[in-house]
Amino acid sequence: MAAASMCWSTTSLSLNDVVVIRAMSKGIGDRKFRDGAGLSMRKMIAVSIAVGSFILLADRSQAANRDGGTQLAAMCASCHRLDGGDGGIPTILGMGPEMLTRAMLAYRSRERPSHIMRAIALSLSDEEIATVARYLATLNK
């Protein structure tokens, strides 16, 4: 385990490696899914949506996860439903990454009022905002 951890934190891992890993994992996933349950890809998506906030964990955006997208989005999930449910707290699904990023920056600068969102936006770096926006945008595709 420790060795694996070292591999990920070193820079020796090239971009190509990452791409290969992604492709591999996706392949495994698809095959296992078809073999195991005999459902179509469309149904798989439907199941993913039905299971609600598990989408959060079903890590479709590998790149977003590698820089902490999952962990950052977990913070959002304390108040915003990530399964599409809505209410007095606005949903953050269905928006592109640019729109989400703009909104966060507007909260940070007080252009948009909300002291809760201001505290959140201030606690995130520009990079983290971009990461979580990218990640959230993958949840409703």
Binding site: A3, K26, I28, F33, F54, A58, D59
Partner: peptide, 23 residues
Amino acid sequence: SRTRREFGRLTGGLALAALGPQL
């Protein structure tokens, strides 16, 4: 390579995690 394998298993599993323990 072990790392890759583990990682592949992990992410593959994650995509399917909701589908039940049989997998």
